[in-house]
């Protein structure tokens, strides 16, 4: 679909453009809205590594996101740790949580796994609610050090940080897709017993998938305290995050790294416009209806539709594979 050279050039150009943007665009609102879209690129890409490639549907994305948010908020409050440290720590917490979830797959598969991840959100939220050090129900106020002068403001700064995270996430996802890991994940999705009998180390592969996915999603939560200045359990463990994590790859297409990016950019932008122009209720209603429509009519997402239109091939039989 895209050669590595082209991919790298585009990634570098996008990154450079993002860092120049604060010099050109004055209105911080664009960065405020763009941050959310970029955040969803990271979340959707992270979700897709486990959900799209390996076929384990995580309903509990907000558990990982919230864990990232609270890790970085706590480090900010207690140790005044810099943002980079917060992100790394959040990713590590996400990896640990992912490995724990991965061990769950030893006993439970399919629907049960999804329900268990849903349970994880509520358990974590209840724990945070009742932990004094994390601010309980009223949350924590998180005001960090002023950002570097180059960025002209906190919002622009976290926007650029999130841009770097998004590029990193997509690079990781693309690398996984074309490497031995991606082949292993696809084998697990197709049939776990068959993969096992062909010598694919399924447990290790699932643990790796859960760990990478969890780490990326938690890292997406890490800049949130710097972005919003305040964290509380309801927004950190919000349902909309879990819903979008699922809807975006599904609408874009789950077989390739491009799907979640397309889904996140499309749906994220629509939502940002809708929350401003219409009400947030109709915004969620639209996402829900779109999700139902895609799952019924185009389960392979926009990319699947595209390749069906272009090649006339049966997209359900042919996974999107591309040589590097």
């Amino acid at each position: 679909m895209m050669r590595t050279g082209t991919f790298a050039t585009i990634a570098v150009l996008l990154g450079a453009a993002g860092f120049l943007l604060p010099q050109v665009v004055a209105n911080p609102y664009y960065f405020y809205a763009g941050y959310v879209v970029l955040q969803y690129i990271v979340i959707a890409t992270g979700w897709n590594i486990l959900g799209g490639y390996a076929g384990y549907i995580n309903f509990g994305t907000s558990a990982f996101f919230g864990a990232g948010v609270y890790t970085s908020a706590y480090l900010m409050q207690a140790f005044e740790a810099p943002l980079v440290v917060q992100i790394v720590a959040a990713a590590l917490v996400g990896v640990a949580l992912g490995v724990a979830t991965g061990y769950l797959t030893l006993r439970i598969q399919g629907v049960y796994f999804s329900i268990a991840t849903l349970a994880l959100v509520v358990v974590l939220e209840t724990v945070v609610h009742n932990t004094e050090a994390l601010g309980g129900a009223s949350g924590l106020t998180t005001i960090g050090p002023p950002p570097p002068a180059w960025f002209k403001g906190q919002t622009q700064y976290v926007f650029c940080v999130m841009l770097v995270l998004a590029l990193l996430a997509v690079v990781i996802a693309r690398w996984i897709e074309t490497s031995w890991l991606g082949r292993g994940f696809r084998a697990i999705r197709a049939s776990e017993p068959a993969a096992e009998s062909c010598g694919v180390p399924t447990l290790r592969m699932k643990l790796i998938a859960c760990a990478i996915s969890g780490g990326i999603i938690a890292a997406a939560g890490a800049p949130y305290p710097s972005y919003a200045y305040h964290v509380e359990p309801v927004s950190a463990f919000g349902l909309l995050i879990a819903l979008n994590a699922l809807a975006m790859p599904l609408i874009g297409g789950t077989r390739s790294w491009m799907g979640p990016v397309i889904g996140a950019v499309l749906l994220g932008t629509i939502q940002q416009v809708a929350t401003v122009t219409i009400s947030s209720e109709y915004n969620i209603l639209a996402v829900g209806l779109l999700l139902i429509a895609f799952v019924v009519a185009a389960p392979e997402g926009l990319l699947g539709l595209l390749s069906a239109v272009r090649g006339g091939v049966r997209w359900s039989a042919k996974p999107a594979r591309k040589p590097a």
């Binding site: 309903f59 819903l243 699922l246 809807a247 969620i284 209603l285 996402v287 209806l289 999700l291």
Partner: peptide
């Protein structure tokens, strides 16, 4: 897919 469908229905 069916989980996602029901998830969407619940939301709607």
């Amino acid at each position: 897919q069916s989980l996602t469908l029901f998830f969407g229905v619940a939301l709607v």
